[in-house]
Structures are given as structure tokens and as C-alpha cells.
Nucleic acid binder design. Structure first.
Lengths: 251, 251
DNA sequence: GGCGATTTGTTCGTATGTATT
DNA sequence: CAATACATACGAACAAATCGC
């Protein structure tokens, strides 16, 4: 590596307004953005960086953790820390079909049913599905895979008794659209999507095969059938380091 | 010697699969979700929580930091840690007008020009604006306010010489739409929006009046005039703790 | 308004666990 | 198996902001 643009310890002294770990994080990020490091390149070890910046290893770790949260870098225990990879575009629109999207991008799509159970509709779910609060709804959790790598973690609520046969159909078909068709839904579309971002909980991180403290994009929305009747209230989590949501673009 | 670490329901012993700080974070989040604590309520002090969970204060801080990143809690030095507040919906669509949105929601909108300078178009910008790479473009940075509180931080690129008078018009008008009109753009619309999430850099956090290490939603997009000619490549940052993006819904 | 106690923020030091090479 | 490298946790000290008296 070139030591030409190396930042010296001089500028990272303690007690200068902005925290040292943040200045280090920005410095490393700038280094990557400047194109000095390519995707997948290995960063110096934490110990090396600590020595280079003249700080404790904790301080470097704090900086690296901030960069790892959004995928700028990826750390692997025992191996090292590496420059992260680009995000896969994921179109969001009136007709969003996971399998179709991934196939079009050249990936192998898959869906794995994690669980299905009957629960009482919460206020939010009931309002969206236009049913009574407390009415029985089917809660389905599924993991979506692209080339075997978990991409999203979805929780859906479907009204009963209309979709009582959905879990079995999903298990049999392996994708949502044909399973809905088996329940008599010829076509469906997305009415509204709300997008927010937060950190993954422990269970979510484990399911998505994410390291700790990673950012997820949360897209909640309502699907309606061709008659405009709400059929599915969904909440999908995407690893922000792997996915970029795309809105519009002629869809 | 660890005999009498009575504490709460669960024991948070070391070395059991999932990290202690994560289990504590999930426990506190569950506590909030259960409705035991309302918006703005003060959490116990870090020292108290550390004692209660039988861990070091660092471990509690790690858990609280995870919750603070997405706004579940908010910490203030010298004061304490409090339960965070709800997010404001922000519609994204073909015709997104900040001032109109905020006024409709009952807020007072404002835009503050941070900087305007002529730069050479990068590959990404050039491609979007359909101009030559390296051609001069106007880079405008502005901060959008709602009721005086910073909501978003935007960077726009506009082709020259068409929009040479834009900064002056923006300064005079105080909003983007009339400023564009002054440059001869009768109407414009959004062609595509890409949404991702990451952590704010030091400078961004400062401008948005965010604490360190907070999550931001990044929406990049292209605006075209009524003739379909690209006029503005924009990148807007939103504090994920304050904003929720809304796509669709009859817009 | 001043001042000390409280509370969160940052950094260093140390030790140990665990996965990779 | 040993060395390397990241992950987690504890302890100590001090800085900086706030709050109550």
C-alpha cells in the first residue's frame, strides 16, 4: 500500500471538539471514497491502525464499528477488516415481485417459511386490512434468499378465513405469488409503502446472517387484490449493506 | 463469587451465544414496546442499569447506543436517557415538494443555502444529467428546516450554464420550486429515487443537529423538466429517527 | 447566579473468548 | 497446533453538560 496519503497521528489528538474515533472513521471513509482502496481490499489490522493513528485499539474499533454498520467495511473474526461491496438495487413499486426481481438481476431467488400462526389483529394491522381489531389473522414469517444469501426478512398478516390455506400453498410452491393464486388471488398490487431505517435486533441479525449492530431498511406496506380488497399487510426488513431500494423508474 | 446477582427476570451471564449487550438492548426495547414507558420518559441512569443487569457500565452503554442509533431512546449528557418520539411521514413521489409537504402537515418550512459552487461533473452525475463527464455543474448544498428543526440535508447538481442564476434565485425566493421557475423551469418531476441507509458522518450529524452515530436515510434521485430534460441530480439525507419515507398512496 | 453533585461521553488499560489462517 | 485478528467485557479516570440547591 502507498504511504503517500497516510494521515499522521498529529491531527488526532484528544480533546479537540470532535471525538477522535469519529475523525478516524471519517478519515478511513475518505480514504475509501478517494478510490485508494477497492472493493474487498483488506484494511490494516486494528492494532496497526491504532498505532498509526496513535490511539488505543478501542478507539479504532469504535471507528470501524461505525463504518461496518452501513456496510462501508466488513469485519471477519480471525481474518480481518475489508472494504465492503456495492448494494443490489431492489425496485419498490405497485407490482413488486421478489422472485421476478431477482431472476431479472440474474440471481436465484428462494423463500423459506419460518413460521405461520393465527394471531389477533393489532390496531395497526386491523386498520390496514380493514377488519375488526382483534379479529383472527394469519401471521406468516418468511426469509427471502438470493443465491442462498438471506436478503430480506418478512412478516405478513393475511385475513382469515380467506387465506387459511396460504402456508401450505407457500410451502408447496416456494414463492408468494403462486401461493396467493392458489388462494384465489389472480393478481395483486402494492398500495402504499413506508420506509424507515433502524438497527437490527439480535434475532433479526441472526436470521439475516448479519453481524451485530447492522442497519436494516424496513418497508411496511399493504397489498390489495384486483378488486382493491386488502389481502396482505407486510413488513420487510432488508440489510442496508446489501440492498438499495429503488422507487419509480417507469414501473 | 457471583452468588447474589439477583436482578431481573433473566440472568445476563457472559459467554452464552448472544452478546450480553445485545440481550440487554433487546430487553430494554421490549420494555418500551410493552408500553411500560411512554414517549419522553426518563430511563434509569447507566450506573443503575449496570447494577441491575449485573454488568459493567460499558456494556449498558453499548446497548443504549444501539437503541439510540435509530431513535428508540435519546441520551443527553448531564441529563439522562429518554424514550424517543415518533417519526414524521415524508411522501416521496413524482412530484415531491418539500415546502408543500411540510405546509400540508402543519409545519413551517424553510430552506437554508449552505453553499453553491461550480465543480466538474463526476461519472455518476454526468450520466444522470446526460452531459459529458467533467463538464461544469453547479453544486448546491442546502438544509431544509421544519419549524426551525433541521429535517434534511441536500446536495444537488445542476447543469451549467442553464442554472447559473439558481443560487441567487434560491437566496431570494427561499424555496427550490420558485427558484427553478426563475431559471425557466415551469414544472418538473422526479424520475427515479434510490433509497439507502447508513450512518451520518461527523459533518452531516453536526448539520442535522444529530448526536454521533445516528442513522440517516439517503434518497438520491433525478428531477426532469416538463420536456423530460434532466435538470437536477439530488441527494437528500434524512434523520431516520425523525422521518419515515412514504411511497405511493395515490401520489 | 454560582457551585457542587449527577449523568452521560470519551479514552486508555487489561483480560479473555473465538474464529481464521 | 500455534499464531493472528477480531469480539466482548471489566475497571479506572477524566471531560463535559446539566440540574438542583
Amino acid at each position: 500500500m502507498t504511504g503517500a496519503t497516510e494521515t499522521t497521528a498529529e491531527s488526532f489528538e484528544r480533546g479537540g471538539g470532535i471525538a477522535v474515533w469519529r475523525r478516524i472513521a471519517d478519515a478511513i471513509e475518505a480514504e475509501i471514497a478517494a478510490g485508494n482502496m477497492a472493493q474487498g481490499d483488506k484494511l490494516p489490522t486494528e492494532a496497526t491502525l491504532a498505532q498509526r493513528f496513535g490511539v488505543n485499539r478501542h478507539t479504532v474499533r469504535r471507528a470501524l464499528a461505525a463504518l461496518a454498520a452501513d456496510g462501508a467495511v466488513e469485519s471477519t473474526r480471525g481474518s480481518g477488516t475489508f472494504v465492503g461491496s456495492a448494494r443490489i438495487p431492489y425496485p419498490i413499486g405497485p407490482s413488486t415481485r421478489f422472485s421476478a426481481i431477482m431472476t431479472a438481476e440474474g440471481h436465484v431467488a428462494g423463500a423459506e417459511l419460518i413460521g405461520a400462526e393465527t394471531v389477533a389483529a393489532s390496531r395497526v394491522v386491523a386498520e390496514a386490512l380493514e377488519i375488526e381489531e382483534g379479529a383472527p389473522v394469519l401471521q406468516v414469517k418468511l426469509k427471502r434468499l438470493s443465491d442462498g444469501m438471506p436478503v430480506s426478512l418478512g412478516t405478513s398478516f393475511l385475513p382469515l378465513p380467506r387465506f387459511a390455506g396460504f402456508p401450505e400453498a407457500l410451502r408447496a410452491q416456494g414463492a408468494v405469488t403462486p401461493a396467493l393464486k392458489a388462494c384465489g388471488v389472480q393478481d395483486y398490487s402494492r398500495r402504499e409503502t413506508r420506509i424507515s431505517a433502524r438497527l437490527a435486533t439480535g434475532a433479526e441479525a441472526a436470521t439475516l446472517q448479519l453481524e451485530a449492530e447492522r442497519i436494516v431498511l424496513m418497508a411496511t406496506g399493504l397489498n390489495v387484490d384486483d378488486a382493491g380488497v386488502p389481502i396482505q399487510f407486510t413488513e420487510a426488513l432488508f440489510a442496508a449493506s446489501r440492498i438499495e431500494l429503488v422507487v419509480g423508474s417507469g414501473l
